[in-house]
């Protein structure tokens, strides 16, 4: 049976059906991400001062990834414009860039995730003296990297220390902690740059809590991973659909070019939405 209005606009709406469909879907997506943003706002304004994690993400990498996603958004719309004037070759070229950008985005994001999984906070039973912003301070909480038997392990927790019967491990602290203000953190990073980092050897018995930057570390990281992973799934889903239309589904261009162009437009609308979500996620998670 022929499905009506896949290419021709309906008289009452003035739209082909898939376009109404995708906008309804995007409306539900706005509410999905809206709910999560709402959770973020509520948890953040309700957090005890000084406990909110900030300033630990890699801003240059995040900025670059933002640019990658914006580029993919413009190539999507340019590929659709190319199809509108019947230039299939140019459409294929632009959409190939889109797919590469999508893979690039996901690759960079996984790299960022991996960095977090092997980056730690340690809560100590007794305070130690460290240098922060050129001053010696006493603290029982340090951020930094672990070295154990020549490796930099990922996903370790307080439990791991007991399970692996770790007696002691080497710890290289960062010059900052998120209890500092953004300004203090920037100053501390600057004064520490180029200097050799201090090193500690911590006994397992000295450690009150140990956590990598995983969802269980804090409310912030729980939100960070939930929001970015859900967004990354959208990127993946969008990329799969765009690839299908671009590759195996391209036969339709010969049989039903108008319907094919509409498919490209609808997948493009979804892609722009994914870009739009990132436009808010980036400042909220990386900068504020």
């Amino acid at each position: 049976m022929e499905i009506p209005y896949t290419a021709q606009p309906r008289k009452d709406t003035g739209l082909y059906n898939a376009k109404v469909g995708i906008w309804l879907f995007l409306a539900s997506e706005v509410m999905l991400f809206g709910g999560l943003f709402s959770a973020y706002i509520l948890l953040r304004v309700g957090a005890t001062p000084g406990t909110w994690v900030h300033g630990l993400l890699n801003i240059p990498i995040g900025t670059f990834n933002t640019a990658v996603l914006i580029t993919s958004s413009v190539t999507v719309v340019l590929s659709w414009a190319a199809l509108k004037v019947g230039n299939f070759g140019r459409y294929r070229f632009y959409q190939a860039i889109t797919i590469l950008c999508a893979l690039g985005f996901l690759g960079i994001k996984s790299f960022e995730y991996r960095e977090k999984f092997s980056h730690y906070e340690v809560w100590l039973n007794q305070p130690v003296t460290v240098t922060r912003g050129g001053q010696e301070v006493q603290t029982d909480r340090l951020l930094g990297h672990i070295e154990y038997q020549g490796h930099h392990p990922a996903f370790w927790s307080t439990k791991t220390l007991a399970e692996k019967q770790v007696e002691s491990f080497k710890f290289t602290p960062d010059p900052i902690h998120y209890k500092m203000t953004p300004k203090e953190m920037a100053h501390a990073r600057k004064t520490a740059a180029g200097r050799k980092a201090e090193e500690f050897e911590f006994k397992a018995a000295d450690v009150k809590r140990l956590s990598a930057f995983v969802p269980g570390h804090s409310t912030y990281f729980a939100l960070y991973f939930t929001l970015t992973a859900l967004h990354a799934l959208h990127v993946l889903g969008g990329a799969v659909v765009i690839f299908y239309i671009w590759g195996p589904g391209a036969k339709m261009w010969k049989t039903d070019p108008e319907r094919y162009t509409n498919r490209v437009e609808v997948s493009g609308l979804f892609w722009h939405f994914v870009d739009l979500v990132w436009i808010f996620l980036f400042p909220v998670l990386y900068l504020l």
Binding site: V76, L276, I279, F280, P283
Partner: peptide, 17 residues
């Protein structure tokens, strides 16, 4: 930050979409 993000989002919605 939110002001700039809103403008960017509006540009995407109005022109790309």
């Amino acid at each position: 930050a939110l002001f700039v993000a809103t403008i960017k989002a509006a540009l995407v919605a109005c022109y790309f979409m």
